[in-house]
């Protein structure tokens, strides 16, 4: 929903997608305090995600995970000059209205929090603030874009330190894009039906061979090599959640992941920056997670 005044148009689709374009080639880091936000900015993060608990702690502690307290989000916003994002529960329209009122830069309608609605997502076109949403495959990505998401991230499995799901989801998205691009046009409606995706967006994928918004990776990135892997698989940037502040030396690791995303095609540099980083976060085998605690299944 944009506003026009004096020939100046605010909060347009182009400015929403455009901010995500400016974040490309960068790392967005989860932080739970203003001090962590400053560490992230100093390490070269392009944005921070303001949270009360990182996904690894949400997973360990259980209970209902909600939007962060507004005062925490505001304090984190005060502490840095880079963009600040925050998460709302899937379908929680009012949490999103609150974050828009706080004047942050981006909302993540996130499966990492406990869903507020088990059937519907937020109508993101109604907001002036842009949204990023998670996906496991192209159909889910296009449904979210259809609802107004101006940026997409593959979900991975947050809080595990295990990159396998992020890889699966990114490969699924990229593979489906390639498949649609090579199809004859008459098959696109049936594909749209099968994917549960808006037909117009499927046609757009067919014509351009890419998503109409920026696509980051998320969920399980713990090392510079993980981050570079996601970039080589076609991600345009990386979210790192628990992987930084649950590791032995967060500043050093954060800096190394930033360098690895910039130089993702340069193994010499990735090798160099991967040295002496201390302990990575403890990883979790995906098959050991009870089915009802698999976060990436949330989203409709």
């Amino acid at each position: 929903m944009s506003q026009v005044l004096n020939g100046v148009e605010k909060s347009t689709w182009k400015t929403k997608v455009g901010l995500a374009q400016m974040l490309k080639g960068g790392v967005i880091m989860d932080v739970v305090t203003p001090d962590q936000a400053k560490v992230a900015e100093e390490a070269g993060a392009v944005a921070v995600m303001a949270l009360e608990r990182v996904p690894a702690d949400i997973r360990a502690q259980g209970g209902v995970a909600r939007m962060s307290a507004p005062e925490l989000v505001s304090r984190i916003k005060e502490s840095v000059t880079i963009p600040v994002m925050a998460k709302v529960r899937i379908g929680h329209i009012v949490e999103a209205q609150i974050l828009e009122a706080l004047g942050i830069d981006y909302i993540d309608e996130s499966e990492v929090l406990t869903p507020a609605d088990d059937q519907f997502h937020i109508d993101k076109h109604l907001f002036k603030i842009p949204f990023v949403c998670g996906c496991r495959n192209l159909g889910e990505a296009l449904r979210r874009i259809g609802e107004g998401a101006a940026m997409i991230r593959t979900k991975g499995e947050a809080g595990t330190g295990n990159v396998v799901e992020a890889v699966r989801h990114q490969r699924a998205v990229q593979g489906e894009i390639r498949r649609i691009q090579g199809m004859p046009r008459e098959e696109l409606m049936t594909v749209a039906k099968e994917l549960g995706a808006p037909y117009e967006l499927v046609v757009q994928i067919h014509e351009t061979g890419k998503l109409p918004v920026v696509n980051f990776a998320a969920g399980g990135v713990a090392t510079p090599a993980d981050a570079a892997l996601m970039m080589q698989l076609g991600s345009e940037g990386v979210f790192v959640g628990s992987g930084i502040f649950k590791s032995g030396d967060p500043f050093k690791r954060a800096k190394a992941i930033v360098q690895a995303v910039t130089h993702y095609n340069n193994p010499q540099i990735i090798a160099e920056v991967s040295k002496n980083l201390g302990e990575p976060m403890v990883g979790i085998e995906i098959s050991k997670i009870p089915q009802d605690q698999v976060l990436s299944k949330r989203g409709w």
Binding site: V8, E9, S11, K16, L19, E100, G103, D105, Y106, P130
Partner: peptide, 15 residues
Amino acid sequence: RRNAFGSQLDSFEAD
């Protein structure tokens, strides 16, 4: 001046 117009909510297009 950085971020001179405000947050993302104040991003805009103009001629």
